[in-house]
Amino acid sequence: MAGVTSGSIYALVGLGFTVIYSVTGIINFAQGEFVMLGGMISYIILDSTGLPTVPALLLTIAVVATVGAVLYLMAIRSARKASVVSLIIITIGASVFIRGVAGEIWTRDYVRPPYFSGDESLSFLGAYIQPQALWIIGTTVAAMIVLQVFLTYTVMGKALRACAINRAAAGLVGIDARVMALISFSLAAAFGALGGVVVAPLTTTSYSVGVMMGLKGFVAAAIGGFRSPFAAFVGGITIGIVESLAVAIDWGPFSSAYKDAIALVVLLLILLVRSGRLAAEERVG
């Protein structure tokens, strides 16, 4: 269950990677920072304004989605003639920048926003489970469904897909690829923030959690081949379960101390297998 819970968060982060990559060809290494911003900003809003939980969380997500849009407009769009590789490096720079600013203006301690609905464990099939874990899983599933419905049934969602399939042809029917790129960055930021908002009460958060979150979300998306949101979802859950199994076995190389290394090993394997394919599919931003 712990695996599914943390896997859900990786899935949300992976969704962000997938959305941006499929629409623009860019791998956004600032994706993990959206998770950090979600957790930190929700903590600050809840701690200092006394807003009720739901509006505070929605406000947080809106703020982070705006950060995503600003990141695109200032860092990516203004470098429009740069190659995809340079744009990816720009996102790495942006993540360092966001993390640095967060560490300067906010506390460097770990903070914990309140649970959504108390911290009394629920008994479920003989196991105890935190209600927040249910919030995390439920939110991720709901977000997945909303995204899928958006991409499948709305004109805008279809336009995003059209842009992912063939950017030149999308231009010919009147779709502005740059507007679609802006939307994909905002969407990815919103999904990352959602992950940060729901996970922070359970795991606590700090200005620096984005690195690991980004890494694991990247692995989740890579398992899914950056293809579809659903594939990223499956990838995220897979990483989460493998990690928690390692912690459960807790022997030799499967020690819980190496928990975070597992995602890296999976990443290495994926890169070995897929690097040729990804390079072949490289598209211009």
Binding site: V155, K158, A159, R161, A162, N166, A169, V173, I175
Partner: peptide, 27 residues
């Protein structure tokens, strides 16, 4: 240059994007 992994109807819907997007909320 059709959108191969979309349906025929979706391709035609995308063809009307220029009309639909005249009002930015409609998409």
């Amino acid at each position: 240059q059709i959108f191969g992994t979309m349906t025929v109807m979706d391709n035609l819907t995308m063809g009307s994007y220029a009309h639909v997007a005249r009002n930015w909320l409609r998409p």
